[in-house]
């Protein structure tokens, strides 16, 4: 299949960090209804995946790569807020080199501040917002492309 994600990768699962290379015994296969069967020894569980969200047995966790080992072309390039929010700070400028996980923008909604981090290492191609601006999910606040 030559699948981009079928290489060893360090991922963040919720707040846990996990190395897929570290010998996890789970084997997964896709099923016709779009779900994934995860086999772990004698146990088979159903997982549903949508974007970075993975559902297993009623618990949803976001799975994100946090280090190298992934085909860079498969990584997202844009940074968008998870909820309607106001931009508090813009921490990078166009042309700046950034690392994966680096804070790019902080936003606030209902008095809670959230840092939006770079999904990949690369160069900031565009910064489309300024502090005080109202933003919504799907809007590209920052674009990071491969160096």
């Amino acid at each position: 299949m030559g699948h981009a994600r079928e290489v060893a990768v360090r991922v963040q699962v919720g707040i846990q960090v996990y190395d897929t290379a570290s010998g996890g015994p789970s084997v997964a296969s896709r099923r016709a209804d779009g779900s994934v069967a995860v086999r772990h020894g004698e146990t088979v569980r159903t997982a549903f995946v949508a974007g970075d969200q993975v559902w297993i047995d009623g618990r949803v966790r976001r799975v994100r790569p946090i280090a190298g080992g992934v085909d860079p072309a498969a990584l997202p390039t844009k940074v968008t807020p998870p909820m309607p929010a106001t931009v508090v700070k813009v921490l990078v400028g166009v042309g700046e080199s950034v690392t994966v996980g680096q804070k790019l923008v902080t936003v606030a909604a209902m008095k809670m501040e959230t840092a939006l981090r770079s999904p990949r290492a690369g160069v900031v191609k565009a910064v489309n917002v300024v502090p005080g601006q109202q933003v919504r999910p799907g809007e590209e606040l920052v674009v990071v492309e491969a160096a």
């Binding site: 789970s26 995860v38 993975v54």
Partner: peptide
């Protein structure tokens, strides 16, 4: 949120199709 069996989540995530990366300017993601 309690800790989960991260191996199972990572395996499922790796097995799922790669989401398309939004590229077009102004286009729908």
């Amino acid at each position: 949120p309690p800790d989960v069996d991260a191996a199972a989540y990572a395996a499922a995530w790796q097995a799922a199709p790669v989401p398309p990366v939004a590229t077009s300017a102004g286009g729908r993601v």
